[in-house]
């Protein structure tokens, strides 16, 4: 994703892939899903990117896998990772922390290679400036 190889990212995803960006919003004491797509929806989102006006500052996603819970019977693994997203300005190259949170992944292990089945980007950061068109 950092290199905007969206086709390469989708190749790592199972056909039943689900993606979401969620957060808890304490000001209104409610859960929120800011983005929710299946694999086809993600592809359309990526395909439409050139048609939009977007912030082109590159992101750097730093992920540390903390917990891996493998289910042999289901042939799946669930992982929990911490996430830090940094944004680097194109003019001058200053880097700022853009977002922090956790990633909850489910990985299918029943094929030739592991495939991402479900990804929930659970954000702690809720003030995201102008926002961003590309998912984390």
């Amino acid at each position: 994703m950092d290199s905007k190889d969206f086709a390469g990212f989708l190749d790592l995803c199972d056909p039943a892939f689900r993606y979401a960006i969620t957060a808890y919003i304490p000001e209104i004491r409610k859960e929120m899903t800011w983005l929710e797509q299946d694999k086809e929806g993600m592809k359309l989102l990526f395909d439409n990117l050139p048609r939009h006006n977007s912030d082109h500052s590159p992101l750097s996603r730093h992920i540390t896998v903390c917990i891996v819970d493998q289910d042999e019977a289901k042939q799946q693994a669930k992982t929990i990772s911490t996430l830090q997203v940094f944004k680097t300005s194109l003019d001058g190259g200053a880097t700022e922390l853009f977002a922090v949170g956790k990633i909850y992944d489910t990985v299918a292990l029943n094929g030739d290679a592991p495939k991402l089945l479900d990804r929930n980007i659970r954000l702690d950061t809720r003030m995201l400036g102008a926002g961003y068109h590309i998912p984390f």
Binding site: W34, H52, N53, R126, L128, A130, G131, P135
Partner: peptide
């Protein structure tokens, strides 16, 4: 209109 929505990001830019 969300932080990852198609229009709000453009308006804010």
């Amino acid at each position: 209109w969300g932080p990852f929505g198609r229009n709000l990001h453009e308006d804010l830019l």
